[in-house]
């Protein structure tokens, strides 16, 4: 006869509390990886700093007449751009886990099916928060000053960015699951995120672009987010761009979350 023997009592399912704890454990694991791979820290720390410096001092004078004026115009948008690139870590990490077999080990454990994904995304939020603080700090050192909304405005901008990152992570999850290897996730990032962020109002004013491009720039979620961050950090219009950004976030999540979950389940 088949049957479990003595001492092998098993639980029928994972509880929600267990799932949350497992997700946090897996988030911990993702962050510990950074400790052993200083290159990754360099990646998401040096690159944003370099961008701030390059754009401010190379383009600032030409685009805005002075580096100070340009820093004020560009920094909120640069934070947005940086946020999009940081979401790629979710995709790369997931891809590495799947291709290297770590995922199979995790899935053979009695843990919540969603914990590996949730853990990745939770860890990504920590990286996001870190890089927002970093870019802002470099900006402040170079002379960026907050406007009338002050600190509550910055906190609002950070919350909005994290919320958008959460939604956009699903795009990264999908790419991570479909890509053959982690390098391809990176390639996707460069070939899609660079145009997306440059064809926006992050680096230059919209009215300097040809009319056919302006149409896209004006609906580009990156423009909306950049406007929202400008409003929240410097003062100015807030409601419209914030609502538009949140609408984009919801739209992206509504399309990519179910798609990713489907691929996730099929893959596995």
């Amino acid at each position: 006869m088949t049957g479990p023997g003595n001492g092998t009592a098993t639980a029928p399912r994972v509880t929600l509390a267990q799932g949350v704890r497992q997700s946090l454990t897996l988030a911990w694991r993702t962050l510990v990886q950074v400790r052993h791979n200083p290159f990754e820290l360099t990646d998401f720390s040096i690159q944003p700093i370099m961008f701030v410096l390059l754009f401010t001092y190379v383009f600032g004078g030409a685009v805005a007449g002075s580096t100070d004026a340009y820093l004020k115009f560009m920094l909120p948008g640069l934070i947005v751009m940086n946020m999009l690139f940081v979401t790629l870590y979710v995709g790369q990490g997931l891809n590495t886990d799947v291709t290297k077999g770590v995922f199979d080990r995790l899935r053979s454990l009695p843990i919540a099916r969603w914990a590996p994904l949730a853990g990745r995304i939770a860890a990504d939020q920590v990286k996001q928060a870190w890089s927002i603080v970093l870019v802002l700090a470099v900006g402040l050192i170079l002379g960026f000053r907050l406007g009338s909304p002050g600190v509550p405005g910055v906190i609002g901008a950070a919350v909005l960015l994290l919320a958008f990152a959460l939604a956009f992570s699903w795009v990264a999850v999908l790419v991570g699951l479909l890509a053959k290897d982690a390098e391809r996730v990176q390639i996707f990032g460069f070939t899609s995120l660079f145009p997306l962020t440059f064809v926006s109002n992050v680096f230059v004013p919209v009215d300097s672009m040809p009319g056919w491009l302006q149409g896209f720039v004006n609906i580009n979620p990156v423009s909306k987010l950049a406007d929202a961050c400008r409003g929240l950090m410097l003062g100015g219009e807030v409601a419209e761009p914030v609502i538009a950004s949140l609408a984009w976030a919801l739209g992206i999540a509504a399309v990519f979350a179910p798609l990713s979950v489907r691929v996730f389940k099929r893959k596995i």
């Binding site: 088949t2 077999g101 009695p110």
Partner: peptide, 28 residues
């Protein structure tokens, strides 16, 4: 262990350990 791998997957997972070409540790 008497549990169906599809219907009682979670119970099965509590009974098994997997080592293999495709179940790996994290190199990082």
């Amino acid at each position: 262990g008497g549990h169906d791998v599809l219907r009682e997957a979670h119970r099965v997972r509590q009974l098994i350990g997997l080592t293999g070409q495709y179940a790996s540790v994290d190199t990082r």
